Computed example of a mutant assay.
Amino acid sequence: MEDFYRMLCAKLSALVDGERNPVPNMANAAALLFQDLERINWAGFYTMTDGGYLLLAPFQGKPACIQIPFGKGVCGTAAETDSTQLVDDVHSFSGHIACDAASRSEIVVPIHGRDGSVVAVLDIDSPETARFTKEDKAGLEEVARIMEKACDWH
């Protein structure tokens, strides 16, 4: 993992230390990511509901879609497949949900509860095509692991 993500993860670990509630931890994580990541226009979370959809959670950026059906769009696909989605061009992603017309690329990382099920996703958007790299993928997957360990997910 490159130095930028080592430092980012150290900052995040300090922010969530001692707090088990996911809401303030997601809020601080979204603010940190929005502040520290370059060339992005949205950073935040969606949480899984019992109703089979993702619900908007703490974020930074323009207003966003409130509900995303499980399996739909980049976020729903990440949750359904339990795999990070790194999308160079969202307009070529089948079923993309355009919450912000300015977004061109996106990375979405699943977050797991104690039982291993997907409880949330971390979503980062950029107005640039092909903004996210393999290094971003590895770094943001580490961010997700920190959130998994820090929070009591219900």
Rank of each mutant, 00 (worst) to 15 (best):
D100V: 07
D88P: 12
A101G: 14
V119A: 04
T77C: 08
A64S: 14
V119T: 01
P110L: 05
T49F: 08
I97Q: 09
Q85G: 11
D89T: 07
S83E: 15
A102D: 15
V119C: 12
L55G: 04
T84E: 04
G52L: 06
I68N: 02
G52H: 13
I107P: 02
G73S: 01
A98I: 14
C75W: 12
G52A: 10
Q60R: 15
Q85N: 10
A79L: 14
C65L: 13
F93Y: 13
Y53K: 12
G51W: 00
D50P: 10
A79T: 13
R114T: 01
V108L: 03
D82N: 15
G51N: 10
S94T: 06
G61N: 06
R104F: 03
G73F: 07
I111R: 02
K72E: 15
G52Y: 10
D123M: 02
Q85P: 06
V87G: 13
G95K: 06
S103H: 03
L122T: 05
G61R: 12
L86Q: 07
A120Q: 08
G73N: 06
G95E: 02
T77E: 05
D82C: 14
F70A: 08
S105D: 05
A78K: 09
I107T: 00
P63R: 04
A98Q: 08
T49W: 00
F59M: 11
R104N: 11
L86P: 05
D115L: 05
R114V: 09
D123C: 01
G71R: 12
S94H: 03
K62F: 03
D115Y: 06
V119I: 12
V118S: 01
A120T: 12
G51I: 07
S105P: 08
V74E: 09
G73T: 10
L86H: 03
Q60G: 09
H96M: 09
L122D: 09
D123T: 02
V87S: 13
A78V: 00
Q60V: 15
V108D: 03
T81V: 02
R114Y: 06
A64V: 10
I111G: 07
P69Q: 11
Y53F: 15
Q85A: 13
L122R: 02
H91T: 13
G116I: 01
Q67F: 12
G52S: 13
K72N: 08
D115R: 05
V121C: 06
Q60E: 15
G113P: 08
Q85H: 10
A98K: 01
I68F: 09
V119H: 01
S103I: 01
S92H: 11
H96C: 07
L55H: 02
S117D: 14
A78P: 06
S94D: 14
S117C: 10
Q60A: 14
S103M: 08
A79D: 08
A101T: 14
V109M: 07
V87N: 11
I68M: 00
V87P: 07
A57N: 02
Y53N: 00
S92L: 15
G51R: 15
P63N: 12
C65T: 09
T77I: 08
K62T: 13
D89M: 00
F70W: 15
T84P: 07
T81Q: 11
P63T: 11
A102L: 12
Q85L: 12
C99T: 04
V118N: 04
A102H: 13
G61T: 14
A102P: 00
A120W: 01
G61A: 13
H96V: 07
I97R: 05
G95V: 02
P69K: 08
